[in-house]
Design a protein around this nucleic acid. Structure first.
Lengths: 223, 223
DNA sequence: ACAATATTCCACGGATGTATGGAGGATGCC
DNA sequence: GGCATCCTCCATACATCCGTGGAATATTGT
């Protein structure tokens, strides 16, 4: 009763999934995949990995059950196996931030400060309803198309300088990007400030918005 | 703007916490700690580890921010750093079970089948209210004292044979133990069946009960 | 069938993780 | 102080992981 070997086998099986979360690069890949599916090649470039290395990490994630694949011609698209995986990633982040001082420090060092006033999801939602603000999505277009906050305008941060005139200058702008660990919104706020504009920033990003089960619009039709 | 080295440092910091979940023995330790605090020695014995090995694993968990310590005389008591850690563990389990077929297989192989009818938390709560059932906690006494389902009777599974007469034979008994991966309740049901008694089993256990924020009673006073 | 593209598989060296036994620290009791 | 207890730290041997390049595989287009 309660064979230790079988107990070890059970927890080792769990550990296989845990192991997928034990490497920074794999976590970066999960962070990217939380925005939508991507090909191996795209993931490798985005995470700054060699192709074969990225492939190996993706195999590990697949083995762990965290991602699934879809073949389209010669390309293979990876995506998260489910929203529960995104929740797991987000919870790992929260736990690490709560209980390890080094994490918030590293986060601030990476994101830098933008002096922007931050807005919670609920505040943003309320202000969108009243038409009080313009919401700006600064992620790459593909990610915007895969799902964005209803009513948001898409201007990838790389094009923001030349397209800044598309933003009204008589309405407050709230910028957002992928999630709590995404620099794009910080960069955008700094860039806008450099142009004499003032912008607010959503406290986290699309990932948390989706996990909170708030409405999401996709390329074709609004949700 | 988005220094790759800082990005890597941030995700590596996260990975330190993830790494804590990458080893079966550490997951066993977390599972035990979810029931309440324990000394190093007790944890080592319960998990079937050498003392120094257990100590090393606990250092890893502490480094990851998942556990904290408290010294009492010569002993050091480890405990989970917070309920969010228990949630993280539970979510990892759920994700692994959902997306990896090997996990439920290993679970069933470890727990064995007891033929018992299972009861959900809500069903149990309702039936406790009406006084319809006796709830039996078969965990070690210390764990019962650290927190149990209000109204539950404590008979550790090891003493169940000799103390079986303490259970009424005109009322249904619902057995529970630590959580979804705990054998004690399964063993108890098999044992009761061997004595001609029939018992139901709570679908999961104390861990999930607590995380669902249902009422918990402690040794002295009921919650 | 052949070439091109995208991805996976394989082999290797360097780094990191794991278990074990023995030494070293901290606390409590006499 | 001296000793016992409990735990941590250190050194060692072994296994596993990581990143890298080259070979093998699968699909598409010609």
């Amino acid at each position: 009763m309660g064979d230790p070997a079988r107990k070890a086998a059970l927890f080792d099986a769990l550990a296989t999934t845990g192991k997928a979360l034990s490497n920074g690069k794999r976590l970066e890949l999960l962070d990217l995949l939380a925005q939508g599916e991507r090909t191996v090649d795209a993931l490798a470039k985005a995470a700054g990995l060699g192709l074969t290395t990225a492939s190996a990490h993706l195999q590990t994630l697949k083995q762990a059950g965290l991602v699934t694949t879809r073949r389209e011609g010669t390309r293979i698209h990876y995506r998260l196996a489910g929203d529960d995986v995104a929740h797991l990633f987000a919870l790992l982040r929260t736990v690490a931030e709560t209980h390890r001082a080094a994490v918030p420090v590293a986060r601030d060092a990476y994101l830098g400060s933008d002096g922007a006033q931050v807005v919670t999801r609920e505040e943003l939602r309320a202000r969108v309803e009243t038409g009080d603000v313009v919401v700006l999505d600064v992620r790459p277009v593909e990610e915007y198309e895969a799902g964005h906050i209803p009513g948001a305008v898409s201007i990838p941060v790389g094009e923001l300088t030349e397209r800044i005139t598309e933003l009204p200058d008589d309405t407050e702008v709230v910028v957002y990007c992928r999630g709590a660990y995404c620099v794009l919104a910080h960069d955008a706020v700094r860039l806008l400030a450099g142009q004499g504009r003032r912008a607010l920033r959503l406290h986290d990003g699309m990932l948390e918005w989706r996990l909170a089960e708030l409405p999401v619009a996709t390329a074709g039709h609004s949700a």
